[in-house]
Design a protein around this nucleic acid. Structure first.
Lengths: 251, 251
DNA sequence: GAGTGGTCTAGACCACGAT
DNA sequence: TCGTGGTCTAGACCACTCG
């Protein structure tokens, strides 16, 4: 049986503390942070731990600066973490919007070809399909078509109705979702999409197709989510990395 | 004057070696890698260095597995890196497509309100606007509307015409682009979009708005890129991280 | 219980930016 | 020249998985 994840490690708590100093405005945009050595001694942790925390903040785009330069708060940094690809309800709350939902369908069905492929199931295997309309401040914002493998879906087929966060709901039952792969594109609203989201047929929708994996690396959910692009978008950071030639590696 | 980035560090070369063992099929999907300790001794580096390399591969979704489990090659792992948000031409080549382009306009203009905001310029400031149609195997695939701050744009206003990679072109002139922030949504094709991309007005397009920063953290480019969603999409990995309560941090 | 990865420490050297 | 962050090492302890 899986157990609860333990208490947050040191570097995660430090990360949270630093993040809050930025979001509360104690460290404003353009401010240089104390050096890594100074943070080490202030918090009584090693420099390695400080660097783990700073790396996360850099990945989120809150900080920039490199060798020889102190880490600096990016101007235009979001005061809310707004980290990429949070679950819908969490994301909504961080944006100060009120998440809501209506479950339109929850049933055991034959998996679609796409779902079979993503979930590594044989053709014609059964899954639990859940169709949910997600709301922001009471307005339709996203249509979520999820397929769960049976041994996970069986928890959802009935009693999930009122549940806001499926991730938490499953966590309480010993299933820990760990990672996800997302593919993002745009698609014209189908007849059904249009009716449920309240837009014209053919209107542009932002589509996210997602495969979620449990802690054992097994795919457990495949989902096709269609967002109204006027209400929602995705935010991503990256850093440019030069290519590494594969020259005579390993003698 | 900025100098060239030095030779790749050890952990990057190790990362490249491991990646190639996966992409060449030497380590197939489902295979468990040697333990971190074994990799340490095989390559004669410390465990910390091995972990730096493995972290990158995990972030790309090539590996999974955690405490107590050996790192394992994800099934369905792309043999090509297909890392998120590469420059267009590099991305195309990794997909075995032939990138092309036509520069439709390059001129010094007053910046749009959006560009001013992203580039942190005063209202009415001037920028160099470049409009490029990007092709895949000769077919229109993306429309790129970039605005560069003047001291970068001046390199581009004339002689860039044949340049495939603006990043490399600027690097040769001492300007190193370091990081970028992306916002992704969907939008209906405007009249101009439709004509240039060869689709109907109102057709759904995948839009990426990008702000690119140089190594000093200064925004140097703002771009609005519109992709044909049939030819292109974005691929993103993430890992679920529990929230960290901010309880009495720091005495 | 043995093996493994996650975390954390302490220290070192170097490349780079600022002065 | 000096301070800084990037890299790398060596070693330790613990939580977790697996047989």
């Amino acid at each position: 049986m899986s157990s609860q994840p333990g208490p947050p490690p040191l570097h995660r708590k430090l990360e949270a503390e630093l993040r809050s100093r930025i979001s509360t405005g104690r460290w404003r945009a353009g401010t240089s942070l104390p050096s890594e050595a100074a943070l080490s001694s202030e918090f009584g942790v090693s420099r390695g731990t400080v660097r783990q925390a700073l790396t996360s903040l850099r990945d989120e785009g809150l900080l920039f600066g490199g060798r020889g330069r102190r880490p600096t708060v990016r101007s235009g940094a979001k005061s809310q973490p707004l980290s990429t690809f949070l679950p819908f309800a969490e994301w909504a709350r961080q944006e100060n919007l009120n998440p809501g939902q209506r479950t339109l369908e929850a049933a055991r069905r034959e998996a679609s070809a796409e779902a079979c492929c993503a979930l590594e199931l044989p053709d014609g295997a059964f899954v639990v399909n859940i169709l949910r309309l997600r709301l922001l401040d009471g307005e339709a914002a996203m249509l979520e078509r999820s397929s769960f493998v049976l041994d996970v879906g069986r928890y959802l087929a009935d009693s999930h109705a009122g549940t806001e966060s499926i991730v938490e709901f499953l966590g309480e039952r010993g299933i820990w979702l760990e990672s996800a792969h997302h593919t993002v594109d745009a698609i014209a609203a189908s007849t059904a999409d249009a009716q449920l989201l309240g837009v014209d047929i053919g209107a542009p929708l932002l589509r996210e197709r997602r495969t979620t994996y449990d802690s054992g690396g097994r795919p457990v959910e495949y989902s096709d989510d269609r967002y109204l692009p006027t209400l929602t978008n995705f935010s991503i950071e990256n850093r440019v990395r030069g290519p590494v030639p594969l020259t005579g590696q390993r003698a």
